[in-house]
Amino acid sequence: MARARIADVEGRDAVRAWATADGTAGSGTAVDRDTLALAVRYTLQLLAEQAPGNSVEVRVPPFGAVQCVEGPRHTRGTPPNVVETDPATWLALAVGDEGWADARADGRIRASGTRADLTGLVPLIDRVR
């Protein structure tokens, strides 16, 4: 069964709460777990909507994962193109506080496969402060 779509107002409010939790976007330290989870799931939803497809799986444990980007469809086993990162890094990428290349170079993004590159797909939304 498909998960219900997160309303834009609700999702943006969660991202805003995360971004302003302690005055610095990207820390995620002062926001409650439910709000953090909602912000992550909302931005993953935006990625799947803005880059539909099934060739790349983006994972942000423990809160969610989506398949996105047009290309060969993955159907069984471990996907060949996987991006995985932590919630704070993911949200910083989603709002443009962090660049893909910098986060990848710092080892905060694990990406495998020839299509596992979100350059040009993030940020997903404008800063929501």
Rank of each mutant, 00 (worst) to 15 (best):
M1S: 14
M1L: 15
A2T: 11
R5L: 12
I6M: 11
A7T: 04
D8R: 14
D8N: 12
V9G: 11
E10P: 04
E10T: 15
G11R: 01
G11V: 08
R12K: 09
D13S: 05
D13G: 07
A14F: 01
A17Y: 00
A19Y: 00
D22G: 13
D22C: 15
G23E: 01
T24A: 12
T24P: 00
A25S: 13
G26A: 05
T29C: 05
T29P: 02
D32R: 05
R33K: 08
T35M: 13
L36N: 07
L36P: 01
L36K: 01
A37R: 12
A39P: 02
A39K: 07
V40G: 04
Y42E: 03
Y42F: 15
T43S: 12
T43F: 03
L46Y: 10
A48T: 14
Q50V: 06
A51N: 08
P52F: 00
G53D: 06
G53F: 03
S55G: 09
S55L: 00
V56F: 05
V56Q: 08
E57N: 00
R59F: 05
V60S: 08
V60Y: 00
P61M: 02
P61S: 01
P62A: 03
P62H: 01
F63A: 06
G64V: 11
G64L: 06
G64F: 03
G64E: 05
A65V: 09
A65P: 09
A65T: 12
A65E: 09
A65L: 05
Q67P: 03
Q67M: 13
E70D: 12
E70F: 01
E70P: 10
G71E: 02
P72H: 04
R73G: 08
H74M: 08
H74G: 07
T75I: 12
T75D: 07
R76E: 13
T78H: 09
P80W: 10
V82W: 06
V82T: 09
V83L: 02
E84I: 15
T85Y: 02
D86P: 09
D86G: 14
D86Y: 02
D86R: 10
A88N: 08
A88L: 05
T89V: 09
L91E: 05
L91N: 00
L91R: 00
L93E: 06
A94G: 04
G96D: 07
G96S: 07
D97T: 12
G99H: 04
W100N: 15
W100F: 09
A101G: 14
D102Y: 10
A105N: 15
D106W: 05
G107P: 04
G107Q: 02
G107D: 13
R108M: 11
I109W: 00
I109F: 01
A111R: 04
S112M: 09
G113S: 02
G113F: 07
G113Q: 08
T114I: 10
T114K: 08
R115W: 10
A116W: 00
D117G: 01
D117L: 03
D117S: 04
D117N: 15
L118R: 07
T119H: 08
T119E: 11
L121T: 03
V122Q: 05
P123K: 03
L124Y: 02
I125M: 10
R127K: 11
V128L: 15
R129F: 15
